[in-house]
């Protein structure tokens, strides 16, 4: 599979590692637009910065 472009860390600008996809139920309630009906919640990606330990969440891109 082609390597995806790495997300830039909002804390330090370094490259983040995309290590998880997961359903976020709370987000789908706060932001109904984010609901993925096939999963019953928002399907999200989780990226962690090796330098500052920050994890960011964003909608899955598949």
């Amino acid at each position: 599979m082609a390597q995806r472009e790495k997300l830039k860390c909002p804390g330090c600008g370094g490259e983040m590692n995309f290590h998880a996809e997961k359903v976020d139920y709370s987000k789908a309630l706060a932001d109904p637009q984010s609901m993925d009906a096939e999963f019953g919640g928002a399907l999200e990606e989780f990226h962690t910065c090796p330098r500052c330990k920050l994890t960011v969440e964003r909608p899955a891109t598949d």
Partner: peptide
């Protein structure tokens, strides 16, 4: 329940 991304992996 007040967090999620903070716990992943």
């Amino acid at each position: 329940d007040s967090n999620l991304k903070e716990y992943i992996h």
